[in-house]
Simulated scan of single mutants.
Amino acid sequence: MILTVTPNPALDLTWRIDRLVPGATHRADAGAVRAGGKGLNVARVAHAQGASVLAVSTAGGRSGIELAAELATSGVPHRLVEVVGATRQSIALVDESLGDTTIVNERGVNPSDPEWAALLGEVVDALPGAKVLVVSGSLPPGAPQTLLPLLIGTARDAGVPVIVDTSGPAMLQAADAGASVLKPNAAELVEATGIADPIDGARSLIARGAELVLLSLGADGMLAVTGSETLHARLDAPLSGNPTGAGDAGVAACAVLYADGVRDPETLLRRATAWSAAAVLMPLAGEISDDWVALEERLVVAPFPRTVREDPL
Rank of each mutant, 00 (worst) to 15 (best):
A118H: 12
A130C: 12
R107E: 00
V123Y: 06
A117I: 06
D113E: 11
T102M: 04
E115K: 02
V123A: 07
A117K: 02
P111Q: 08
R107Q: 13
P128F: 00
A118I: 00
S112G: 15
V104P: 09
S112P: 07
G99W: 09
A130H: 10
G99T: 10
T101G: 00
D113Q: 14
E122H: 03
D113I: 13
V124T: 08
A126E: 03
T102H: 00
A117D: 13
A126N: 06
N110T: 08
N105D: 04
E115I: 14
D100T: 07
T101M: 00
P111M: 10
V104A: 10
D113K: 03
A117W: 03
S112A: 15
D100W: 01
E115Y: 13
E115Q: 15
S112C: 05
L119E: 08
N105V: 01
V109E: 12
L119W: 06
A118M: 02
P111H: 03
D100V: 09
L127P: 08
V109F: 12
P111N: 09
D125G: 10
T102C: 01
T101A: 15
A118G: 03
V104L: 12
N105G: 00
T102S: 11
W116Q: 13
L120W: 14
E115P: 14
A130K: 06
G108E: 00
E106G: 15
G129C: 06
D100K: 13
V123F: 10
A126S: 12
G108I: 05
V124Y: 02
E106R: 04
